[in-house]
Simulated scan of single mutants.
Amino acid sequence: MAVFVALGAFLMTLFGGWTAQRVTDRRHLVLGLAGGLMLGVVGLDLLPEALEAAGQEVFGVPQALLLFVGGFLTAHLVERLLASRQAAHGADEREKVPQVGLTAAAALVGHSLLDGVAIGAAFQVGGAMGTTVALAVIAHDFADGFNTYTITSLYGNTRAKAVAMLFAGALAPVVGAASTLLFTLPVEILGSYLGFFGGALLYLAAAEILPEAHHTHPARSTLLCTAAGVGFIWLVVGIAE
C-alpha cells in the first residue's frame, strides 16, 4: 500500500519539474517562487519535524538546531571551495558552479527518499496515519520537483542533467517507501538529517536563489511569488495537521 501511494509523490514531483521548465520566460518569478517554497519547507516543515524527532540538547542547544547551523555552514563551505577551485583554473568566480547545483539537487533527492521512508513508516503505524503523511508528502513534492529542476538549471547544468535529477527525485519516494519493507529508520537519525538538510536548503534559498531572482528583475511580482511559495507550504502543513 505504501509503495502504491508513493506513486502519487512520483507524479507530483514530475509535475513540479515540468512547471519549472514551462515558465522559462518568467525566470525571475520562477526563482522567487522557488525561494519561497524552500523557505517554507525549511521553516514550517523540516525544522519543526527535526526538533520533534531529535530534540535532545547538546550543551544547552537542541541537537536539531546545531545540525541546522552545521548544514548551513557546510553548504556555504562547499560552495566557496568549489568556486575557489574554479577561479584557480581561470574561471570568473562570479560564474555559477554546476557542481553546487548537482550537490543541492542530490540533497533534495535524499530528502525525497526519506519522504518515502516516512510514508512507509506511517503505514506501519496505521492506515489513517499513513494516509495523512502521504497527503502531506505528495503535496509538498510539487515543491521538491520544482526546486530540483530549478536549482540544477540555475547553476549552469544542462537541461538533460536537470531532467535526470528530476526523475531521480521522483523515483526516490517510491524507493524509500519500498525500503520500509526491509527495515525501520530510527526517529532520532531522521530528525538529525532533517535539521542538517534544512540548514543547507536555507543557505541556498537565502544566499543564491532569492538574490538571483532579484538580480535582473527587482520587481514586486517576484516578492509576491516568494510570499506565495511560503503561503503554499503553510497551507500544506496546516492541512496535514
Rank of each mutant, 00 (worst) to 15 (best):
G156V: 03
M165S: 08
Y193N: 06
F146W: 11
K161L: 15
I119Q: 03
A121H: 15
A164M: 15
A136N: 00
T131M: 12
G127S: 12
K161Y: 11
T132W: 14
A177M: 10
T158A: 07
L108G: 10
A143R: 06
L194V: 02
I151F: 09
L202Q: 13
D115M: 05
L201D: 06
G127E: 11
S192R: 06
G198W: 00
V174E: 04
V175W: 09
E212V: 05
G120A: 06
L154Y: 07
V133F: 01
A122Y: 02
T150R: 07
Y203T: 13
L114P: 10
A162G: 08
M129L: 14
L194C: 03
I138T: 02
E208R: 00
G126M: 00
D141M: 09
L190E: 04
Y149D: 07
G126Y: 00
G195A: 03
A177F: 08
F196C: 07
L210Y: 11
H214E: 14
S179H: 04
D115L: 08
A178E: 03
L154V: 12
E208V: 02
L190V: 03
T131W: 14
S192M: 08
L113P: 08
V109C: 02
I151Q: 11
F197V: 15
A170G: 11
L210V: 15
P211D: 09
A164F: 14
A205V: 06
V109M: 01
D115C: 06
L114I: 13
S153P: 14
L135Q: 00
A206N: 05
F146H: 09
G156L: 03
M165Q: 04
E208K: 03
G110F: 10
Y193D: 10
I138D: 01
H214Q: 14
T158G: 09
N157V: 13
A170F: 11
S112N: 12
G116P: 05
I138L: 03
A121T: 15
A162F: 04
L166V: 13
G198C: 00
A128N: 07
A177Q: 09
A128V: 12
V137A: 00
L108N: 09
Q124N: 13
Y149K: 09
A213F: 10
T180E: 10
V137Y: 00
A162S: 12
A207F: 01
N157S: 15
L181G: 11
L113R: 08
L135N: 01
Y149E: 06
D144Q: 05
G110D: 07
T216I: 15
H217M: 15
F167V: 14
T150D: 03
V133T: 06
L135K: 01
E188L: 07
L194S: 01
G116Q: 07
G110M: 05
G169M: 02
R159N: 12
E188W: 08
Q124R: 11
T152F: 13
L135F: 00
M165L: 08
Y149T: 12
A134K: 01
